[in-house]
């Protein structure tokens, strides 16, 4: 097979008259499947493991006042193939709606050539939690090429435009970019009541944005350390600074 899959999946969450969220659309497409559970919608299949040549897209719509959590069952593995692989997630969140997008990490395997793109459009009053974790190669292997681009607007204004490019080891391995980290991740929190002061600790920054949001970025030697750092930072960013010790 020289051409990969091009699945298009979609999830729509809407609040009913009583304010309860209903999944009004839950569309799986071939290898890209979405499965609803009691507390989240899980991604399974191609969205979780893009193979070279695949071009998967996921559309998420969260209506005003609705809530949607996206998870995945397992670590995603970006693998080599005859052509670059691509995943695109588009999301809209209405006023008072909340999207919590936190799939398992992606591993950029040796030889992969993957483009991950996410475009999120938040209405005024919407809130967001968006987790992105990337592991540079499987155990003791160098990563392939991996580009992620994340664009978020809030009330029509750009809130965050953030790219991470693993292409040239002389760039991403630079002491200015990732140094010798094997795992890198971020959590974007958008909405009200977030930390307004920056915070740093080893391999970790909590960065209040100009718009209503906080970007957490972390680098770590491995995925477990990365997750710990991001979790610590999230606690701080949600305005509970006494739970971790101040570094600066």
């Amino acid at each position: 097979m020289t051409r990969g899959y091009t699945p298009r999946a979609a999830v729509t969450a809407e609040a009913d008259a009583a304010g309860r969220t209903r999944l009004t659309r839950l569309r799986s497409d071939g290898p890209l499947a979405v499965r609803a559970t009691a507390d989240a919608v899980y991604l399974v299949g191609a969205a979780a493991s893009p193979l070279g040549g695949d071009d998967a897209a996921l559309d998420l719509a969260v209506g005003p006042g609705a809530r949607l959590a996206i998870r995945s069952a397992a670590t995603a593995l970006a693998l080599p193939g005859p052509a670059p692989s691509r995943t695109t997630v588009r999301a809209t969140v209405g006023a008072g709606g909340r999207l919590d997008y936190a799939p398992e990490p992606t591993v950029a395997a040796r030889g992969c050539h993957h483009h991950a793109k996410a475009l999120v459009d938040l209405a005024e009053g919407a809130s967001l939690r968006w987790v992105d974790e990337l592991i540079l190669g499987r155990h003791a292997e160098p990563p392939g090429r991996h580009t992620s681009r994340f664009d978020v607007t809030y009330a029509g204004r750009p809130l965050l435009r953030h790219e991470l490019v693993l292409d040239d080891p002389a760039v991403y391995g630079s002491t200015a970019v990732l140094a010798d980290a094997r795992a890198v991740g971020s959590v974007l929190l958008a909405g009200p009541d977030l930390a307004t002061d920056p915070f740093t600790a080893e391999g970790l920054s909590v960065l209040p944005l100009v718009g209503p949001g906080v970007l957490i970025t972390a680098t770590a030697p491995d995925s477990a350390a990365l997750r710990r750092r991001l979790a610590d930072a999230e606690t701080y960013a949600r305005g509970l600074p006494e739970t971790i010790s101040h570094h600066t």
């Binding site: 750009p158 435009r161 200015a176 970019v177 140094a179 920054s205």
Partner: peptide, 18 residues
């Protein structure tokens, strides 16, 4: 403008805050 490069450098961001 929306598509202009946005290459990030997590260590630079951390250094700036430190």
């Amino acid at each position: 403008w929306a598509e202009l490069p946005a290459a990030s450098a997590p260590v630079l961001d951390l250094y700036a805050e430190l």
